[in-house]
Design a protein around this nucleic acid. Sequence first.
DNA 1: TTGTAAGCGTTATCAC
DNA 2: GTGATAACGCTTACAA
Lengths: 331, 331
Amino acid sequence: MAARTTLKDVARAAGVSQMTVSRVVRGDTVVSLRTREHVARVIGNMGYVPNKLAGSLAQAYSNQVAVLIPSLVNNVFASVLAGITEELEKGGYNPVVGVTEYDLRKEEAQLISMMSWRPAAVILANLVHTDRTRSILENTSVPVVEIMDIRGDPIDLGVGLDHEAAAAALADYLMDRGYQRFGYLGWQANDFAAAARFRAFRARLETRGYGLVAPDVYDAPPDLPAGKKGLEMLLSVAPKTEAVAYSNDTAAMGGVNLCLELGMRIPDDLAIAGFSGLRMAQCLPQPLTTIRTRRRDIGETAARNILKRLSGTPVDRKVDLGFELIKGLSA
Amino acid sequence: MAARTTLKDVARAAGVSQMTVSRVVRGDTVVSLRTREHVARVIGNMGYVPNKLAGSLAQAYSNQVAVLIPSLVNNVFASVLAGITEELEKGGYNPVVGVTEYDLRKEEAQLISMMSWRPAAVILANLVHTDRTRSILENTSVPVVEIMDIRGDPIDLGVGLDHEAAAAALADYLMDRGYQRFGYLGWQANDFAAAARFRAFRARLETRGYGLVAPDVYDAPPDLPAGKKGLEMLLSVAPKTEAVAYSNDTAAMGGVNLCLELGMRIPDDLAIAGFSGLRMAQCLPQPLTTIRTRRRDIGETAARNILKRLSGTPVDRKVDLGFELIKGLSA
DNA sequence: TTGTAAGCGTTATCAC
DNA sequence: GTGATAACGCTTACAA
């Protein structure tokens, strides 16, 4: 495409004005059918591609939606993003993805960078941000959706679940099952939702007179090998642990694996619980006891609410998609 | 941000021209230190955010790189994307991600949409595209990198591995181990790299007088449950199968799981092999026999080559990152 | 139904 | 060093 063909080129070739071509491109029906067809043909021949840079500049807004998520490798956010993408496309919007790596500074930097593209809306995770980030979001005129955790007050819109309630429900379930010596293995110290779960889990144990024998939180990606290694270390410190709660299903699968290798019986020798409700973890010989969250739904709902808001439809300020305790065979 | 502050506003407030402010924003050192500091202060106070729409329009190119990948949920592409993102950021570029769902029509639509944002470069998967897609890519003046499979001729740049060679290597290994009755379980009929592996695997068996007892290819996401179910069906058709090659590690883990449940010994009753070399699959009680690919590296290299090309440095047209046979305990 | 003119907020270019 | 001016390619508002 040596010299890009522009509206002007098409207009000249079609013998009409730029505006008429512009109208045809955008499907404006005020243009007579005759000219519309004529221009459309010329456009096809010339391989004209509209320049949205110019279009959005003229319109003050783009059809891009800024999406800031902590991690792409984490299956949870991959699902959320899939939901966002699918739903956004229905409205003709495209997600522009930024990865924050659970780092609020990076979130801020990414947001600033994205705002300069004049997105039509912003989606980001959790309710905790830097002051600068908050200030930008509070002052923007475009819709902002904070997803995942909804305990607290969203800046504009919120979609997710109550992570503390979820963790408490799991703690209750485990205590009801009769376990007494609990361990906790968490990852990604900057994952605020996970941190909230950890605190709530521990607090719930304490309200009923129990406590954590050995809590450990690592600042690393919560993958299967990590879950294995974490449990190894925990057991070396507190070998009498009866039940271990993981911050994450994938890591919990690592724990299951270690037990298999050491010949420990689950849940008799050690009970294991996860968080997320990944399909994968339900395929273990003993399906994992865990909390199922509606990840994809969170993404879809966030996107849908943006579309609603952009079209002027009233939207619920906060949407709680809830969670579900999966009573597996691992605890 | 009721009325956005623009370059003009800042200029007025600082008592200089727009151009001077523009220079300061971009870190142009021709501006005297005095004015630079002064203007920087004013910018800070006013909370000015540059409008890249306008900037890129004026410059004819943006700092966005279009990235078209088949799937986000698939861990392989999540890693590739992570590599791309990290490396691109070093050069001040941002990825704009489009998901094609292994559908060439969607790839085409996404590409057209992205080209209208005047990206600085394009990254997409595989060498197979629609005619229209090819034509757009052949005619663009920006760098284009086709990743994953490199057997064949890239339009511009290519980074990946030879999937057929990898599949053949795996077939050889399995035959050398003495297996004779092979099954194959693949997913995502439109995944061209996977399809190439399937053909190559079968072809290699045939050159040595073997063949597939039961090949099955499903058009669904290759997750763990799918791998389990696929194997169930395969064994019901061909119970005497000795070794099953999976198109994908995650699905292979499903197969391992089924064996555990059925009490089948691996690899004595059934040998299982995967593809990708996910860390997760190496944490099974019996590490999976598989082919390790350098996913993250592919992303990094693709991005690095774009940066090189954009800065005028010569670049290898095709980069083969190779693969590695992991001799696990599952086959 | 179609066209004209004036921006949108930057940057390149060339004076000063 | 700094500034005026003309693009960049489109859309809005209004005129014909």
